[in-house]
Amino acid sequence: MSGGSYYVPTTSWWPILGSLALGVMMVGAGVKLVYDTGALLMLLGVVSIIGVMGLWFRDVVRESMGGLYDSQMDRSFRWGMGWFIFSELMFFAAFFGALFYVRTFAIPWLGGEGEKGVSALLWPDFVAHWPLLSPPDASVLGPDQVFSPWQLPLVNTLILVTSSITLTVAHEALKLDERITCRNWLAGTVLLGCCFIIIQGVEYYEAYNHYGITLEAGIFGATFFILTGFHGVHVIIGTIILACILVRICKGHFSTDHHFGFEASCWYWHFVDVVWVGLFIFVYVL
């Protein structure tokens, strides 16, 4: 608790502009998906969102640099970020849940095993097997083959784990006020993030062009892309966040004991890392 120094901003344009921008993006996305036009509208929405976020964060950074935030405000940000990451975790939990359900229940049932195995009457030629290369209905083309986890996915795992370590080193350096070291290790982390994204891009290219893993390739393709896809989006966002933090480090923001912007991005990055480990195990290895 603080002594009445809690900062309450007066008024702000960013909330309402942000919600309008999100609305524009969603309408654009809908028009694009349903009527195959409106990409420009969607782009306008995305650009506006980025713009509003930039301005909003600029205000926050200025207020923070201006010393308007006390330790109670710092705790508010911590609670906020912590619960936000929990919500992200539950978002991924939905997709993991779908994967587990399909593998443990739906596919065995369709193949004639378990309590609802009688369903196999409808799919006489179907054999339950994971990874699902031949979906129950022959008109749905499954993947030709699936990735070996011990090639690119393993490389990506190593990259992300390494990036978590480099980020921690950068954080420690900041705490010791070693600015240059912090900057270098943070830059390394950003670079590793970029490598991950590129490798994931290569893997997607391979998936579509040589492995026959597509969104339409039955439930394997669906779960594969929704899990790795949303994870990939999070890595991209995380990398952008870290890049922004890098800029702020270079500008000399953050003090040794007051740098929640830095810490929040670390939390986010570690979260993305943990999700990948789960993904590597359940999507690629098992």
Binding site: W109, L110, K116, V118, S119, L121, L122, W123, P136
Partner: peptide
């Protein structure tokens, strides 16, 4: 009645 599955 679930499409693709059989209930008993």
């Amino acid at each position: 009645t679930i499409p693709g599955f059989i209930n008993e």
